[in-house]
Design a protein around this nucleic acid. Sequence first.
DNA 1: GATGAATGAGACTTCATTCAT
DNA 2: TATGAATGAAGTCTCATTCAT
Lengths: 194, 194, 194, 194
Amino acid sequence: MKRNKPKYKQIIDAAVIVIAENGYHQAQVSKIAKQAGVADGTIYLYFENKEDILISVFHEKMGYFVEKMKEVIAEKETAAEKLLVMIENHFKILSKDRNLAIVTQLELRQSNKELRMKINEVLKEYLHVMDDILHYGQERDEFLKDIDIRLARQMIFGTIDETVTTWVINEQKYDLVSLAPAVHKLLLRGCALR
Amino acid sequence: MKRNKPKYKQIIDAAVIVIAENGYHQAQVSKIAKQAGVADGTIYLYFENKEDILISVFHEKMGYFVEKMKEVIAEKETAAEKLLVMIENHFKILSKDRNLAIVTQLELRQSNKELRMKINEVLKEYLHVMDDILHYGQERDEFLKDIDIRLARQMIFGTIDETVTTWVINEQKYDLVSLAPAVHKLLLRGCALR
Amino acid sequence: MKRNKPKYKQIIDAAVIVIAENGYHQAQVSKIAKQAGVADGTIYLYFENKEDILISVFHEKMGYFVEKMKEVIAEKETAAEKLLVMIENHFKILSKDRNLAIVTQLELRQSNKELRMKINEVLKEYLHVMDDILHYGQERDEFLKDIDIRLARQMIFGTIDETVTTWVINEQKYDLVSLAPAVHKLLLRGCALR
Amino acid sequence: MKRNKPKYKQIIDAAVIVIAENGYHQAQVSKIAKQAGVADGTIYLYFENKEDILISVFHEKMGYFVEKMKEVIAEKETAAEKLLVMIENHFKILSKDRNLAIVTQLELRQSNKELRMKINEVLKEYLHVMDDILHYGQERDEFLKDIDIRLARQMIFGTIDETVTTWVINEQKYDLVSLAPAVHKLLLRGCALR
DNA sequence: GATGAATGAGACTTCATTCAT
DNA sequence: TATGAATGAAGTCTCATTCAT
């Protein structure tokens, strides 16, 4: 399995750095190879083509993401708490790896439709985690029964994503993680007084 | 003023069609010219360069967007109603012009960072409209006083945007406009029972 | 005769200014038209094509050049004196019209082979003036009988031309005309002590 | 060092041939690549851009030129002899490589101002060789002490250059090298009887 | 005579991918 | 396994010239 060889991860990590530093359109295969300390041709021993590198970047990082999420969520009892730790950890992981944040929020979105479709496939697993929390909340009578799960998930993901993107665009100059409680509250309670 | 000449709009409209049908990276100037029924060189009598076409597409369409929004919002009394018509009209406009929806939600996001920065400039005006509604709601004691306006706006925009994008990715096969009330309710009330 | 209409000269003069200020390759027909205060299309009522403008520039200016030369030369008795006033006037005319100097010494030489061949045709008349002086000098026993007229003319023209070009490249920052006597002496006496 | 790899010289030589045969403005990169027997892209492994090819052509050939000159000049005792062998060799080198003659005398002069400035830098070394001979001649009391070195150099270079250009324009149909003694005599003795 | 909007051909350069070593 | 030199397709933009008004 190529996935487990050292050069595989070496190239993935090089890709994140090169894309973050140079932007998606300036991340040539030769630059990634140089950053990874291998020859251009070596890339093709581990990846089908350039697109495969980018998908693998997302796959690899998102895999860790979802795994981590499931872990922290399982430790909490209520749906509200689960949602909070999910938001917190989403913010934490991207705060810790600024390059990854730039790559996922800005650069990878410049890829073509086809690549983005494949990225969305990977994303789905994360979206399912959100759906699970929502169902769980409804079952426990924490969340409204009549909300449309898909819409609620779009609200949650859209809000989190927009928040992170705004933070990245503003060059990460404020603390993202500390926004988690307010975002959490907003998602739970909405804007209205009631 | 070139902006008012018929060929200007002709080219803008051609660009939307070509980008929607072929994707951002396959929208060559020659294709746009052909679609617009003009010579390649004519494009450059009306636009500085290819990027200028794309910015102008966004500018032109978003200009209409914001104008329309301000109009329908002004007609409503409460902040809640204003928010509802904003969501409705956002969905309506993109539902009516499916090509535009594809272009704004998927294709234009593939542009490089520089172009996206310029697009963001245009977007800001729309975001201000959202801020205005939020402030207005707080003044009228419709909305919670302690919510962070920026976060709330990110929730609103993020949710709307994510909803439209999901709809476009699913090839627009369900009715977007009819989702407006549910999205509106979610944004106002959140997920929780309270 | 178009040559005598005011717009003809207007365009010629505009061409000299535009070429001097922008360089040969940046002297577009539209710029010349603008400088001349006419529409692009009007150019083509007076000139066949762009090349025709450039040849005409040279023709028109060189016509004056040769005329002036013949005039001042006729006033002198000896071949040596004739040569001196020729050099002096060559330097004077180009010193007075700095734009023309730039155009003839630097810019017009960037034209293609074909155009330069045509320019050379125009130049020939000037070269004949030099030949005439040389023959006259040999007849009067002022000049060596055994020199090859063509080579001598190449020396005279080459030296004058190289001197003017060096002066233009050095941004005309010293007085060209005052070099005339030294150049004259060099051409007459050569470098050697004898 | 790319300069020493075989393809580097291969491309330089191809450029000389293509420019001589097609003219400066018709010397497309693709033609040069074809003539050199490499792919278009290969050109860019050895040269920054098209201009770089042209500068390199001049640099490479002129380097040989100056080297050769210094060599033959060193072998002669008197300034007059040095001048003679310089003229002879200038004529010889260009006579032997007719394509190079066309390129240096006609085609490369069509380049833009910027490129010509860079070419002039390379030329300066050759002009210094002339200056050295002139100084040497003055020290040895072979040449007049009161001549202006720069003017004299302009005479020498202007004459040689004009002679070669005339020969190239006349399609090289007479023997250039045999003109060397007469040119030499002219430069030394001038036109006058004394 | 005068205008100026429209035309459309043409070339430099990049970079993902290959393959002989 | 690993290398890296070589490949070659493909697109933006300029500008001389035309011609309907």
